[in-house]
């Protein structure tokens, strides 16, 4: 009857589906407004940053509405940051599930990254619709293929980051404390509220190491016609993602048994 000999990939697919369905119910479980948070969180960032920058230093290029500009930076940033933190806790919060032999630690990370990606796309579409339709901002979606391509590389990068965070977080619980130390500075160097075009060249050379800056700029170039980005490239982003994936999977493979039995 059950436990028919099945291909491991089929087993993994059904486990990820079961975990995904479960995470869907618990992701915002304790919070009163539930899934509205997915939109409220980036909206809060956008409002605060818009107010701060209304006093000056506004960096959005001419012809682009500042709140729309911010949205295209905040949403990918929050996706990355959520993937780091929820990946880090994936194994701990699912510990009881390893009671069932088919459930592997990596499945819990995959399920969580998928959920974060869906939540983030949903929020993105909601925010842009609200801005375009109800608030009257100009929301150009110039090159949809470009936007999709960026995310097709970015989501695997988020997975790699989440998996690395997961393994390190289990082996060294101290890393959980160090997470904000990575997240906060990233907020300021990922191009959420500036463009590469306006940066001095000496600074740009360093900031271009950060793949998030590439993600945000490449996407903006796909959203806004005539958007100028300097030094960013799909090649770098793709290469960075491949190397991170290799590193993440190697790390996971080395410690996969310890993650379950810790």
């Amino acid at each position: 009857m059950q436990q028919v000999q099945q291909h491991p990939l089929l087993i993994q697919r059904r486990v990820i589906f079961a975990l995904f369905a479960r995470e869907l119910k618990t992701r915002f479980g304790k919070w009163r407004l539930g899934y509205a948070w997915a939109v409220l969180e980036p909206a809060a960032h956008i409002v605060v940053l818009t107010i701060i920058f209304s006093f000056g230093f506004r960096y959005s290029p001419p012809g682009i509405d500042f709140p729309v500009f911010l949205t295209t930076g905040i949403v990918p940033f929050l996706l990355f940051s959520h993937c780091l933190s929820s990946g880090m806790k994936a194994v701990d919060s699912n510990r009881g599930m390893f009671n069932y032999r088919f459930v592997k630690p990596i499945d819990t990370v995959i399920a969580r990254i998928l959920l974060e990606a869906f939540v983030s796309f949903g929020a993105y579409i909601c925010l842009l619709t609200i801005m375009g339709v109800f608030l009257g901002y100009d929301v150009p979606v110039n090159n949809i293929v470009g936007i999709v391509s960026v995310f097709a590389i970015f989501v695997p990068l988020c997975f790699a980051a989440g998996l690395i965070a997961c393994v390190l977080g289990c082996l060294f619980p101290e890393t959980q404390k160090a997470l904000p130390l990575i997240n906060r500075p990233l907020y300021f160097v990922s191009g959420i509220f500036f463009t590469t075009e306006r940066l001095p060249e000496e600074l740009l050379t360093y900031l271009l190491w950060n793949p998030l800056l590439h993600v945000i700029e490449l996407q903006r170039a796909a959203f806004f016609p005539n958007f100028v980005t300097i030094g960013t490239s799909y090649q770098y982003l793709f290469g960075f993602t491949l190397v991170s994936l290799a590193l993440a999977l190697a790390l996971y493979r080395a410690y996969r048994y310890r993650l379950v039995t810790l």
Partner: peptide
């Protein structure tokens, strides 16, 4: 999660 949701999860995992 409820008893039903937990049980559903286990049944799904077992295919």
């Amino acid at each position: 999660l409820t008893g039903r949701e937990n049980a559903t999860f286990v049944f799904r995992v077992f295919g």
